[in-house]
Design a protein around this nucleic acid. Structure first.
Lengths: 228, 228
DNA sequence: CGTTGTCTTGATTAACCTCAACAGCGGTGG
DNA sequence: CCACCGCTGTTGAGGTTAATCAAGACAACG
């Protein structure tokens, strides 16, 4: 991790890429930026660990992050695969307490870290901020709900297909946001099963796989998998 | 559903049983109560349905509710099994939009329904209210996270055991909060598998099952199941 | 008394996990 | 430069879990 020296304007510009801060005035963002830190992380570095006090709100402005929990038996469960731009751990930072999960970079990352104190200050100055945070929380809640539905009702191949469709937002070439074993874990599969699911989809001609890059060759066919 | 006539004091008393409103002054609760409705529902009645506009916050003060989503293929997934006292659908009511799920009573229920308008009014009068809502949301988020962990990493029997342990809060006799098929669905199991899991636990002597009532005979043994 | 819905039990099947072996790749050090 | 290592990913064989299909017990109810 390296804390970067940077003028306020640059940090503020980074903040503007996040939906939560996009609608603030430039001055408000600069004020927030003046109390924050711009940091760069290498792939594999840890942003924070489960049970540490939530001292900073992580604004991921470049890169990808794996958010996971360690279970009593030592196994990991990947909860989110986050890609910039996104907020991480806004709830514990806002409400106080410890991070409920750990986060490590799956690529090199650029982060604006907003100290809890600064965030709370901004929240009293800017009454719309808590509402935006709440909306963020709510959409996170819905993501988890969908995830839960998928885990308990759909087969592995279906989960993989719907994950790929959601990943591209309509584009036909998508990069997996993390190593395959982590994507597999996120989808509730073993690495082996994920690998087999990808081969199966490739065999039907729906997709083509090249390392971490997936080409959606036949979207209709891929969507067909969902309803079977 | 029957809307009850009731003096403010009674409705306000009901509100006081909910942690979110417990710390308000009695006057604040009465003001909120004056804009709300006290309703009784029979078992099987519907509180609200997915995709309806979220017009009311449901404060469940007596009874149990099953919150579920209907998937594209028509199947249901039970998201929460709620027991009074509890709030239901606070996020969509607070933030606007539609209910993300449906809710039906699994027992006769008593509810204080707070219209969205009244809730927003109270939120501006009482600045701590949004924070409490947010905390509520956050704990919901954590519940879902745990649920997700359980679904993807633990076997059926383990999920059942840990559900039973959590249900009792230390008590040794617990009532299932819904029909077994709904509990099964909540745990990500078919009714048949849930039935078999209960028999298995009963056979080891950890629990005794009588209809919807579970007696935890040997808690140590039940907890032993979790780590195997 | 038939109907309906819930729950249980048994037999079979399919999905996924586990274990094991191996290929490819990047890094490290002789 | 090559040998070695650790890590990721793929593939195969075999085992286990839970879903599925089917049948029937039982209680609630009109």
């Amino acid at each position: 991790m390296k804390t970067l020296q940077s003028c306020l304007a640059v940090t503020a510009r980074y903040l503007a890429t996040l939906p939560t801060f996009a609608k603030l005035t430039e001055d408000d963002r600069k004020l927030l930026a003046s109390e924050s830190y711009l940091k760069s992380y290498d792939k594999g570095e840890c942003l924070f660990q489960m049970d540490e006090p939530a001292s900073h709100l992580v604004c991921l402005v470049r890169g990808s992050v794996r958010v996971y929990r360690v279970l009593p038996d030592g196994k990991e469960k990947v909860i989110h695969l986050v890609r910039a731009p996104a907020l991480i751990a806004e709830a514990p930072t806002f409400l106080g307490g410890a991070y409920p999960s750990s986060a490590v970079c799956t690529t090199d990352c650029l982060v604006v870290a907003i100290p809890r104190k600064a965030l709370l200050g901004a929240a009293t100055r800017l009454p719309e901020l808590p509402w935006r945070m709440m909306a963020e929380l709510f959409s996170r809640l819905r993501e988890l709900t969908r995830s839960l539905e998928a885990h308990s009702q759909q087969s592995g191949v279906v989960r993989v297909a719907s994950f790929l469709i959601g990943l591209g937002h309509g584009k036909s070439a998508v990069d997996l946001p993390a190593a395959k074993k982590d994507v597999a874990n996120y989808l509730g599969l073993r690495a082996e099963s994920f690998s087999r699911a990808l081969s199966a989809l490739q065999k039907t001609g729906a997709i083509e796989v090249t390392d971490r890059q997936i080409l959606i060759v036949d979207r209709d066919q891929l969507e067909q998998v969902l309803v079977e």
